[in-house]
Amino acid sequence: MLDVATLVERCRQGDDLAWEALVRRFQSRVFGLAYHYMRNAEEARDVAQEIFTRIYQRLDTFEGGETFMPWMLRLARNVCIDSLRRRKARPPASSETGDETLRMAAMGPTPEDSASARSTRQLLYRAMDRMSESDREILLLKEIQGLKVEEVSNLLGIPTGTVKSRCNRARIELATRIRRLDPSYGT
């Protein structure tokens, strides 16, 4: 499998196959992130398209030294937040996302996804739905997208210590909610 740095370099040289490979490599991740912010599959799709357009336009500004993933996630987050601001009129109502959550959970990342994995995802989405925006975002960036504490700190502009303590609190909060929703999870 080609490494990301190579793909990015080829993209900058104008190789459209490299760009296609890059899009295929990250489409699920970008869409997953967009979905977490938008809580709506249709909007998430539009936003994900916009994110890739932005990545394409900004590839020249990506410096080889840094890691692609944090760079991409930062850019993606900015697009998501812009979109959220634009539709600010609509509240992040958790009740209305219920059906949507089930539908998205049913979609799954892979076709051979088992029923139990699907119900797990459904449970996690439901538990997170009811959490605060900031708790959800920190879980999204650190626990879900797997960014390092320093990367999250840079991205959100808060000290690393705060990232750690906030993230731990959010994880306990999530675990508590999950146990309330499904006591059998984790046993």
Binding site: S28, R29, A44, P109, A117, T120, I144, G146
Partner: peptide, 9 residues
């Protein structure tokens, strides 16, 4: 949780 990182469009 890391499994939620990716969602197929």
């Amino acid at each position: 949780l890391p499994l939620l990182a990716e969602l197929d469009p």
